[in-house]
Design a protein around this nucleic acid. Structure first.
Lengths: 144, 144
DNA sequence: TATTGTTATACTCTATAACTATA
DNA sequence: TATAGTTATAGAGTATAACAATA
């Protein structure tokens, strides 16, 4: 083992704990409506990427198409998404956000940002830069 | 708004994305058995903190006692946990890990650490220190 | 034949409500 | 009465298997 093994193991252990805590807090904060984690994820993807097929959403969220189909049905009943047939391929259906879906997505985003903003408000500029650097590194790790 | 507003908003947005990606990868990597996220959380708590009551576990995981009761029942049927009556208070029951539970918990931990270790192996000592600092800061944020 | 989407069925987690046992 | 734990019931996500429609 090299000399950096200690730092690596320490960073890993702490990262796992912090990630879990942060995820739990974010879930709690953004539990505005009876929105589930999956629904929030779909709202974000449709808002950022525009209308998308169930298959693509399933791939992006790493679930089976049948599972995503169920989630989309629930969201459709709640008025968060709406479907449009693909004019070029009769097999495909495009799901997009309704106005209510967009507003809900905005509310979730605001709630999460508000919480983080207040929780990080007292941080020094230096600490913020440290976090920015680390987040960029971890983002690459998650993609690897 | 102060001069640090830009850094803060940028850090927040990137943090939210990175946290989501990392969480998804960790879930996928530690999906060894048919373990659910809740079961992995219970395994970790019992392994780290020793035998615990359902009420305390429910509080720690921010779920209702009835929900935790169900999860514990499932884990008991699968041989991951076992119950012991509290000798001092007849109302309470202590749940602890079985040998199989401990081994399963170890396997989950190893899988997550292994993945992170390989994903972070190429990092410089300086980057690791940046992550360590950021993780410490974010851990406090999550507790706030 | 392959792809897209859905329905049928089952399991787990979660919640609310109601119940039992102990303090 | 208050607390700890459970059971009953319902809703949501996920999975596998099987199906219809389109390419």
């Amino acid at each position: 083992m090299g000399g950096s093994s200690g730092s690596l193991e320490r960073a890993i252990a702490q990262l796992l704990i912090a990630n879990g805590k942060l995820t739990r807090r974010l879930q709690a904060v953004s539990n505005l409506r009876h929105l589930t984690w999956s629904q929030v994820a779909v709202l974000a993807r449709l808002d950022d990427g525009g209308p998308t097929t169930p298959a693509d959403l399933a791939r992006a969220e790493a679930v089976k198409p049948q599972s995503m189909s169920g989630t989309l049905s629930n969201m459709e009943e709640e008025g968060l998404v709406e479907r449009t047939p693909d004019p070029n391929d009769g097999r495909q259906i495009l799901f997009g956000l309704t106005d209510e879906g967009r507003e809900t997505r905005r509310a979730v985003r605001v709630a999460r940002h508000d919480w983080l903003r207040s929780a990080m408000a007292a941080m020094s500029e230096k600490d913020l830069q440290t976090i920015e650097k680390a987040v960029a590194l971890l983002s690459k790790v998650a993609d690897a």
